[in-house]
């Protein structure tokens, strides 16, 4: 499969990339891991005048997991995140989500920032950044970086808060407190994308009272979302079986028009989100599988 002709540029710094983006305008498309963009180009479902390869910018690939917040360069690959012992120790949810994306070949190429900026409604990372209330850092033509709360980032079907000419450069994740996390995902059997994916962060102490709950849901609606009703039903409550079950029932609250395709109807997706939402909550709360 052969894409239509395009130019190619490989800047070495973020500033160079921003300049090239400003100069090129709409026909210039940033290329991260290429796991979505390249197939689109090869199938000629889309085209680009110029590809701006972000893969040669060292500062975009860095992972700093020793501090708080954890800081991920937008071009950090899924595999680099999956393999990082420091990330596993500091934020196991990120490790788990990274390891559930596609297959290893995809994870070797695909990037955190590429996935977030592409905003596929069934991608895995959005569930994690929503649950963790991560901060997404964008840079535009000026020198000043702009912080966007993950919960403000996803605006619709493959649409984000990034403005034209802006690049997502960094993802900042607050180190979760004591408690547990989990990601439950039903894979579409062909693509490996989520038919339903629920990421959960529960912070609680020995008394099992939930200090903070974060729940991100992907694959179900036209955009990934935070399940606010679930979070509300858990925060300040003791994490017992009944509370978790009642909260899980709220995972898809407010979803009016669920995604529906050959692989799963809307009704089934909603059902799966509730079932796997409960499984994720139980795991994060340290309860045995139901």
């Amino acid at each position: 499969m052969i894409p239509a002709p395009f130019d190619y540029a490989a800047p070495r710094t973020i500033d160079q990339a921003l300049a090239a983006l400003a100069e090129g305008g709409e026909g210039t498309k940033p290329l991260a891991g290429g796991q979505s963009l390249i197939p689109v180009l090869k199938l000629r479902l889309g085209s680009a005048e110029r590809l701006l390869d972000l893969g040669r910018i060292p500062e975009l690939r860095a992972i700093r997991a020793d501090g708080d917040p954890l800081v991920f360069g937008a071009a950090a690959t899924h595999a680099a995140i999956e393999d990082s012992a420091a990330v596993r120790a500091a934020c196991p949810l990120f490790s788990e989500v990274a390891g559930r994306i596609g297959d290893r070949q995809i994870r070797n190429r695909g990037t955190l920032g590429g996935s977030l900026a592409h905003a596929d409604p069934a991608a895995d990372w959005p569930a994690a950044v929503l649950a963790l209330e991560a901060v997404l850092v964008a840079r535009g033509p000026g020198k000043v970086a702009r912080s966007i709360a993950a919960r403000e980032f996803f605006r619709g079907l493959m649409s984000t808060a990034l403005a034209p000419g802006e690049l997502l450069v960094e993802v900042r994740v607050r180190r979760p407190g004591a408690g547990g996390t989990a990601y439950q995902k039903v894979r579409q059997s062909a693509s490996g994308f989520a038919i339903a994916g629920v990421a959960v962060v529960l912070e609680y102490g020995a008394d099992r009272v939930c200090k903070r709950a974060g729940v991100g849901v992907t694959g179900v609606a036209d955009r990934p979302y935070a399940a606010l009703a679930v979070e509300k039903a858990l925060t300040g409550r003791r994490l017992d079986e009944a509370t978790l079950a009642a909260a899980a029932a709220l995972v898809v609250e407010g979803v009016k028009d669920p995604l529906s395709d050959l692989h799963a109807s809307g009704e089934y997706r909603l059902h799966l989100a509730r079932v796997h939402g409960e499984r994720a909550l139980r795991r994060a709360a340290g309860l045995a599988p139901a």
Binding site: L43, A190, L262, H263
Partner: peptide
């Protein structure tokens, strides 16, 4: 053909 690529046609892994 709805299942025209490996994104929609699942071979066993």
């Amino acid at each position: 053909l709805v299942t025209g690529t490996f994104m929609d046609y699942a071979l066993p892994r």
